[in-house]
């Protein structure tokens, strides 16, 4: 009775779970739209911000001291919302629709389920993020010289092959992946799409908003060092690094800490709680 089907079972547990999660992710229309929005918003907002800055507004072009790669990549501040929603929906959508029962019936090991979800969400966000980041740099390269940011004024054309710019670009993709994983972990812990989205948005934006109200510069710097978005986006900086509250890679490390903590708490709750 069960011989024919069981004998044709293929693959190992983890690989099968990843394949199932990938099928699940790509067969929802929302996934395509979110990934498109992630890349599209990153490019469009980056272009708008880049286009609004002109060396004519500064005393001399060099006095602008503009971090042009950072400027071109600033669209991720909004584009990341798509990564947040994708990460939240990957597990929150299962609780909303009840498919979590089917998921755990097919793969009873909670750790395997969460790891597989993390893998496919990270992969999808990395791919869309890379497209968005490279396109944003290309668009910035086109816009910047027209606003006076030329090599002659000390602003070489943007290139993803340039050391610092390459680090900013790769770091931005990693930033998006970590934000998506943070969202996945929070949604796993909260099991509710709306609550998880709100929680992640609050976590990311509360410090940037609060620091504007904090008068004391030392305190502002302290907050920016430990806040996930402010610290994480330090990886986009390519000049005057010594003036940053936190270095590029340590900053991304702070965000990675938040993501790891969220995944750990989510994973533990997922394992010990009833489905």
């Amino acid at each position: 009775m069960t011989g024919s089907v069981m004998s044709s079972v293929r693959g190992g547990g983890a690989g099968r779970a990843v394949r199932a999660e990938w099928t699940k992710l790509r067969t929802l229309p929302s996934t395509g739209w979110l990934l498109f929005a992630l890349a599209g918003i990153t490019v469009a907002v980056g272009a708008a911000v880049t286009g609004s800055v002109d060396t004519a507004d500064c005393v001399t072009p060099a006095a602008c001291e503009e971090d042009t790669p950072r400027l071109a990549l600033s669209g991720v501040r909004l584009g990341q919302i798509a990564a947040i929603v994708l990460g939240v929906l990957a597990v929150g959508g299962e609780y909303a629709t009840g498919t979590i029962t089917a998921t755990l019936a097919a793969v009873p090991r909670r750790g395997t389920v969460l790891a597989a979800k993390a893998a496919v969400v990270a992969g999808a966000v990395a791919a869309a993020g890379a497209v968005g980041v490279l396109a944003a740099l290309a668009v910035g390269r086109g816009i910047l010289p027209r606003n006076g940011f030329t090599a002659a004024h000390g602003y070489p054309p943007l290139s993803p092959l340039d050391g610092a710019t390459a680090r900013a670009a790769a770091g931005t993709v990693l930033y998006l992946v970590l934000v998506a994983l943070l969202s996945l972990g929070v949604a796993t812990a909260l099991r509710d799409t709306a609550a998880a989205t709100t929680a992640v948005l609050a976590l990311l934006w509360i410090v940037p908003i609060v620091t504007r109200l904090v008068g004391d510069a030392a305190w502002r710097e302290r907050l920016e060092k430990v806040a996930p978005m402010s610290a994480g986006l330090a990886v986009q900086s390519t000049r005057d690094l010594e003036r940053l509250p936190i270095g590029p890679w340590p900053g991304l490390g702070v965000l990675a800490g938040y993501a790891a903590a969220a995944m750990l708490v989510g994973g533990v709750l997922f394992a010990v709680r009833d489905a």
């Binding site: 089907v5 099968r16 394949r19 199932a20 089917a102 097919a106």
Partner: peptide, 14 residues
């Protein structure tokens, strides 16, 4: 069909 497909993938079924 996609619902059944991901379930099949999860257990390595053809």
């Amino acid at each position: 069909r996609d619902h059944l497909r991901w379930l099949a993938h999860a257990n390595g079924l053809p």
